[in-house]
Simulated assay, not measured.
Amino acid sequence: MLLLVALLAWPVGLLVWANGKIQRTDALSGASGTDGTTYLLAGSDARGDGGVAEDGTTGQRTDTILVLHVPASGPTALISLPRDTYVEVPGNGPAKLNAAYAWGGAPLLVQTVEGLTGLTVDHYAEIGMGGVSQIVDAVDGVNLCYDADVDDPDSGMVWTAGCHDVDGTQALAFARMRKSDPQGDVGRALRQRQLIGAVMGKVSPGALAVRPGQQVSLVDAGTAALTTDEDASIVDLGRLALAFKAANGADGITGTPPISSMDYRPGGIGSTVLLDPDLTPAFFADIRDGALPAGEVGGIPGS
Rank of each mutant, 00 (worst) to 15 (best):
L108R: 13
E88G: 11
V113N: 01
A72P: 05
I135E: 04
G115M: 01
A106H: 13
S133C: 00
G104A: 12
H123F: 04
P153Q: 11
N92W: 09
V139C: 05
E114N: 06
V121L: 06
D84G: 06
V110S: 02
D84R: 10
Q134D: 15
D147H: 01
A148S: 12
L68V: 12
L109V: 08
V150N: 07
T76H: 06
P107M: 14
A102Y: 11
N98I: 07
G104S: 10
A95I: 04
L108Q: 07
H123A: 01
A100R: 07
G131M: 02
V89G: 10
A100S: 14
S80F: 04
G141F: 06
V121Y: 06
V110N: 02
C145I: 05
P75N: 08
N143S: 15
L144V: 11
D122P: 03
E88H: 12
D149N: 14
A99Q: 10
P94F: 01
V139Y: 01
A100F: 04
A138R: 03
P71S: 03
G128T: 04
A148W: 03
S80N: 11
G118E: 13
C145R: 13
H123L: 02
M129P: 00
D147W: 01
S80H: 12
Q134I: 01
V139R: 05
V70P: 02
D151Y: 07
V70R: 15
A77C: 11
L97V: 07
S133P: 00
P75H: 10
V139A: 05
C145S: 14
G156Q: 11
S155H: 09
G115V: 00
T112G: 12
G156K: 12
G131C: 00
G74K: 08
P107T: 13
A102K: 13
L119A: 08
A138Y: 01
A148D: 11
Q111D: 14
P107R: 13
M129L: 14
E126T: 05
D149C: 03
G128R: 14
D137L: 06
Y146K: 11
L81M: 14
P90G: 03
P82Q: 02
D152V: 10
L81Q: 06
V113G: 03
L116V: 02
I135Y: 01
S73A: 14
V110R: 04
G141R: 15
P82V: 04
T117S: 13
P82R: 07
A148G: 01
S155G: 10
D84K: 06
H69C: 04
P82F: 07
Y146N: 04
G104E: 10
T117K: 14
G128E: 13
A95C: 03
P90D: 06
V142W: 00
R83A: 09
L78M: 11
A102S: 15
P107S: 12
G105V: 08
L109R: 04
A102G: 13
T76C: 08
T85G: 08
Y124V: 01
L68Y: 07
A72W: 05
P153V: 13
R83I: 03
E88K: 10
G74I: 10
A95P: 02
P153I: 10
V89H: 06
W103N: 13
V113C: 05
